[in-house]
Nucleic acid binder design. Sequence first.
DNA 1: CGTGAAAGATGCGGCAC
DNA 2: GTGCCGCATCTTTCACG
Lengths: 150, 150
Amino acid sequence: MLDRIDARILMELQRDAAQTQRDLAEKVGLSQNACWRRIRNLQERGILIGQTVRIDREALNHGLVVFAMIRTRKHSADWLKLFRAHVLSIPDITEFHRIGGDYDYMLKIVTTDMKSYDRIYQRLIEKLELDAVTSYFSMETIAENRPIEF
Amino acid sequence: MLDRIDARILMELQRDAAQTQRDLAEKVGLSQNACWRRIRNLQERGILIGQTVRIDREALNHGLVVFAMIRTRKHSADWLKLFRAHVLSIPDITEFHRIGGDYDYMLKIVTTDMKSYDRIYQRLIEKLELDAVTSYFSMETIAENRPIEF
DNA sequence: CGTGAAAGATGCGGCAC
DNA sequence: GTGCCGCATCTTTCACG
């Protein structure tokens, strides 16, 4: 699927996508052109799907991270569709997983402070009959968005 | 702290950091030059701290996401230091938070399948006396790494 | 903040092996 | 697949209004 060089390219790009193809090519032991072709290939195969910037949340007063575990009460297809749309309509929710175990869904919420979090929480539960919501507040983000090795 | 235009620039860059400054400048209603000056400013203020690529995990057989909640037994400074180093030494752990509530830490683990996850889990607990570990398996990643609004 | 411009760096593609 | 080379484009920086 991926050879060693592709894996190294992905690793380097996760670390720093702003570096020039020439620097990257040198690191993985290729010419700039060969490196560019591999990157284009990874894009065409749908493996590389874009670039984003890393932002220092704390510098912008978005230091509060909360993980909310949700147990739902209703399980009809219609209700679940509404539930998903409602969750996705809240921009401060940066991650949304359907999980197994004691709870059904898990959200990651990023915002400024408790007051703001409470507004989001109220908005989240206002129109939905939920069975239980447990919130875990991150006291310290030790690592986030670490690169994946392939 | 940030005016509207900076916020729009950050939003656009989160969405697509590969677009040219000309396109970006046009979207936010600035000249290319002014846009560049703002971006450099955001970098100098430590707000923009880099660029990374978005990768389709599923296309690379990394579709398994697990959230592990951990309650620790020991709480001495030395032990906690070892604990952190040990967690960070495992590359498949992409997120690591100290949390409040029933548990003390929460990990996000990304890997290929159950067998691989079990290896990571064994490695995680082998040298550490933990009080409790609860794993929530993501059955479906509905949203991940969504842009933050400022 | 805008315009204009200039220099250098970069992405991209063709071509040969 | 790879490397070499050139062109068009882009970033980066400047002066000036």
